[in-house]
Amino acid sequence: MERLRTAFNTICIGGAAIVWLFISALIAFPFLWLKSKNRDRAVRKFVYVQSCGIVFFMRLASKAFRVEKAERPQGSCVVVANHASALDLYTISAFRFNNVVYITKGWVFKLPFFRYVMKGAGYVDAETTSPTEMLGICKQAVQKGCDIVLFPQGTRKDPRARFKSGAFYLAEQLNLPVVPIAIVGTHKMLSVGSFWIKPAKIVLKAFPAKYPSDYPGELGHLHMAQDVKKQVMDFVDKEEFA
């Protein structure tokens, strides 16, 4: 039964998701592009629309799907989440973050089609951008009302990898709250290196914001990273073994 569902998910839902990506690119993108005076904002909105569609297909492909929201802080924030699947990127839209700048690894900027979206939306390549440059870009993005999204583990290969402190340093420097998000089950639905979409229980949870002022000292960002990782991974463990 599980195999049959996986085949259905991959062929029918996966196929529909790909069709959605193309159709939304043909319809939504030109519409948003023409409607918006701010071109990079239009691309970010387009990514949000596409992501909402993918989350809908994830819901169809899942065994169970739950989103637990938390109160959003006023103004911009830094969103951090654990990362174990390519689907994680889309799940952020489930929390209605619709104007975000992703800071990602360089290889995404080399993918055909995606690279134009990445550049057009003003996303940041973490590997080729210096920390000072990144700080400047994020400052400008925040002035435009964007939220910054990072996956501080920096890899999908080790779901328990350390949360690197860069995201938290950024929050500290820009004096922005950090919204931790726990993503459960996406690596079971679409694991690294696989194209089979397996039925899995998906839980997405946003925690109340954490503030850099609560982590004083030179190593405040490092301690914030450790604290957020513990909170996120404790929730992931609890849900995975439930």
Partner: peptide, 15 residues
């Protein structure tokens, strides 16, 4: 360890 980690490591070792 990236460049920020290196700075953090120095602070950790100083302490």
């Amino acid at each position: 360890l990236d460049s920020l980690d290196a700075v953090d490591m120095v602070v950790v070792l100083e302490q």
